[in-house]
Amino acid sequence: MYCREAAALNRLSAEFIDREPKMEPNQPLLAVENLSRQLSERWLWRGVSFELVPGDCVGLVAPSGAGKTLLMRNLALLDPIQQGDVRFEGKTPSEWGLPTYRSQVMMVPQRAIALDGTVQDNLAQVFDLDIYRQRRFDPTILQTWLQKLGRGPDFLNLQGTRLSGGEAQIMALLRALQLNPRVLLLDEPTASLDAATTAQVESLLHDWLQHSSRACLLTSHDTEQIRRVTHRQINLGEFGKRL
């Protein structure tokens, strides 16, 4: 009995923390300093420094092959950092613990991967991960988002592995959004989507960023989209040329 109450209390406080992050004004959410990346002998980019403050939506632009995806993978710590420093709310990923850090700074890769089962299974089963054990899958918020993306509720019943590239991207975006990360790293989030859905995703992203404590870094091959969605741009090519 005691255990159950304690768990409920924990869950309450976890939700409370989720909704009301304590933020010092102007403290950067994500601070990147002097980040460099080498592939065998060649430096892809060097000395990349920038900050994401709450409310930011920043575009990461560069020619193909300049290492945009690798930068995102570095920010999500999916690849080890060779040189430089990444901090979320002033603490390094190791200080946070990697699963905690990644639940806050979440990368959505360009190639969306469906896990086993239906779309709903895909969305629900991530709550089995230890890091989210105090949270619950919430279908109602998903209904709202699906509506904004022009999908019916039956989208949830589609088989994950049979989704088209675009549908899988939507699924992967929703899977990340529902986990309520603070920083989203979106790698070509609309690459496989038609124009109408792209506009809907952009508007959903815009709504999501209205929350004062969130930020987003986004790559896109579509310069118009970068201009529409982001507040400013980081040109990764600049960090490569300087070598």
Binding site: L115, L129, D130
Partner: peptide, 12 residues
């Protein structure tokens, strides 16, 4: 891809 998708979502 599947392993890294899970890692990116916060899996251990």
């Amino acid at each position: 891809d599947q392993v890294e998708t899970l890692l990116a979502l916060g899996a251990t």
